[in-house]
């Protein structure tokens, strides 16, 4: 049990796909115009990560080394197609908002990266937990960027209107919903996470020095 918690923490926080490994930048920039879009994209990627990680781990002794990347891509795209069909059938609004970025999960470097770096070398259980962890880390990152952009750009949280209630006469800044705002917001969010990580590392270093 402890081993699984370790894998989960490692995948979600220590090796956070977005903030630490800087993978999967395209969806992070493109679908984060609102908190809800970011969350739905995160959940879709998490499902694909868990399923493809488990299957790739089960097949890891059968797949020849020379064609492994092609095999991973086929397995991943099968699950992406399944997720896409489910979303299209039951959540048409999400399908419209995320659009082409659902099929593009196939070429998301996080999914292929975890397949190559983790799932192909570990047991199915561990691979599923790693997929869950990476997916959660990615979802939190997307939700954070989506929250900032939606709050500053549209003045809402999950579609409500709290900005104008909190600060009278405050007007949302359209810039943050536009493509340029995506780059700038993500830059500042990653810088803030860097600053926090540096601060916590410094604290740990000083603690160790005292001992």
């Amino acid at each position: 049990m402890k081993k699984y918690l370790e894998i989960l923490k490692d995948a979600a926080i220590t090796k956070n796909p977005t903030f630490v490994q800087l993978l999967g930048m395209c969806p992070t920039l493109a679908v984060t115009t609102s908190l809800l879009n970011g969350l739905s994209m995160g959940v879709a990627v998490t499902v694909v990560l868990i399923c493809s990680g488990t299957i790739i781990s089960l097949l890891r002794r059968l797949i020849p080394d020379s064609v492994r990347i092609a095999s991973y891509i086929v397995i991943i795209s099968a699950f992406v197609t399944a997720v896409q069909l489910v979303i299209r059938a039951y959540l048409p609004a999400v399908d419209a908002a995320l659009g082409i970025f659902i099929p593009l999960i196939v070429v998301n470097c996080i999914v292929l990266g975890r397949a190559e770096a983790f799932a192909s070398k570990h047991t199915p259980g561990e691979a599923a937990v790693d997929g869950l962890g990476s997916g959660l880390g990615f979802t939190v990152a997307l939700a954070l960027v989506g929250f900032v952009r939606e709050f500053l750009g549209s003045g809402t949280i999950l579609g409500g209107t709290p900005l104008e209630l909190a600060i009278p006469f405050a007007k949302p800044m359209l810039f943050f919903v536009l493509p340029a705002g995506a780059f700038v917001t993500l830059g500042f969010v990653i810088a803030a996470v860097n600053a926090l990580r540096r601060a916590s590392e410094k604290r740990r270093f000083e603690k160790e020095k005292k001992l």
Binding site: F183, A191, R198
Partner: peptide, 23 residues
């Protein structure tokens, strides 16, 4: 830049400025 902005954050913010020009 400030240490926290080194590397990718600074590149992203610069890309944002180029994106403004493209808009």
């Amino acid at each position: 830049p400030p240490k926290a902005f080194q590397g990718i954050p600074l590149a992203l913010i610069s890309a944002g400025l180029v994106a403004i020009a493209f808009s």
